[in-house]
Simulated scan of single mutants.
Amino acid sequence: MPAMLDDPDAPTIYRTSGAAPFPDPQDAQPFLPVDVYPRQVTLRDRVTVATIVPFSSRHQVPPSLLSYLSDQLNKEIEMGDTYPMIETMPMEKFGSYWFQNFGAVMLLGNIESADEVTEGKNWATQCLGSFYIKPNYPGRSSHICNAGFLVTDAVRNKGVGRLMGETYLDWAPRLGYTYSVFNLVYETNVASCRIWDALGFKRIGRVKGAGNLKSYPGQLVDAIVYGRDLGPESTDTVSEERFDKIAFYLRYGKYPAGADRAEKSRLRSAATHYKLLENDKLMLKDKEVISDPQKQYEIARNVHVHQHGGINKTTATIAEKYHWVRIKETVSLVIRNCTECKELGKAP
């Protein structure tokens, strides 16, 4: 799920604008902010526990793990559909590129410190994904960041990308960034687009014919430019993971693995507003809660094709029966992708 556009051979850009303190380019192993520490998460099955571990330098990462992640990125590059690079990257180059400012790795199990990530592991079974954070621009605009994401082979469609995206939104402002830009997300990369749409990113631009991709010979694919303010989310935002945790709590009468005291309190409070039917449908009052972004999109598309109504009409129709966060944004995406609406000039 790439979201980047930068030159792997370019010199490292350090954040020099925004709030102090700033990174020291001379420090080979800089300290992380005290509120950026390993984050325990639960996968979509609500049972498997993993930890997203932050690293301030490639020197903290075991060489065998760097080698595994390098191989995973090279496979993605060779597939030719998500990253813009053509040439693969040797491990030495990968380490200095991916972890030059800040990187994180998602590993199975409960990990309390980066010091616990050592050699002797089978990373093909232990490593679920990785992402980096770095300035998108130099100098006076270096408080605006960019990121790149990598989900490993064994854990596709298990919610790993979404969990890393949520963690990115939590950690990036703690690292001093105030706004995020993803320069190049090919519109054919539907999984990535759905994640960023669901996490509140705005489509701030489109690059026509940006990608000569392997799976689309003879045509150039457009790319989306995403942007989002960083900082506290609005109070009405409930993530896909949050809905699933509420359902788990109502179904089993116990907290999901990895829940802390604050989350347990939120779940007890939510239980007074939601109910779980016998067919495992989560309901908020008389509306079915839809947590899966793909199902949200399918519902919106099915409602829209019946009448090809505009954003407000389609949103109102959906809201009579269903509930999820940002229904209107899902509808807007459906209408933008509607061939008939494009032909009639009705697409937003």
Rank of each mutant, 00 (worst) to 15 (best):
I290D: 00
G148Y: 11
D292M: 02
L333R: 14
A124G: 13
L43H: 05
D286F: 09
K275A: 00
R162S: 07
C341F: 06
Y216G: 00
Y168F: 15
S141M: 10
V36I: 14
S332L: 05
D222G: 12
K342C: 14
G345Y: 04
W123S: 01
D115H: 10
L284I: 00
G258L: 02
W324G: 02
P138G: 08
F22R: 14
F102V: 09
T48R: 02
V34I: 14
R301W: 06
N110E: 15
A247Q: 00
M1K: 09
Q100L: 09
F131I: 01
S192R: 03
N337F: 11
A10Q: 08
L250H: 07
Q60E: 07
M4Y: 11
M85P: 03
Y255S: 07
S239A: 12
A271N: 01
L220N: 12
E298D: 09
S192N: 07
V334S: 03
V334D: 03
L169Q: 09
A191C: 08
E343K: 15
P348G: 04
P21R: 02
V151P: 06
N183G: 04
F131K: 01
Q40P: 00
A191D: 14
L65C: 10
S113T: 12
Y177R: 02
E87Y: 12
M4R: 09
M106R: 00
P217W: 05
A20C: 06
N122G: 02
S269I: 00
F22M: 15
G310S: 03
V53D: 05
Q126K: 05
R228N: 05
W98E: 08
E187C: 10
P38K: 13
M1I: 11
Q100A: 13
Q100H: 14
P63H: 15
K134P: 02
S57T: 07
Y179H: 12
V117W: 06
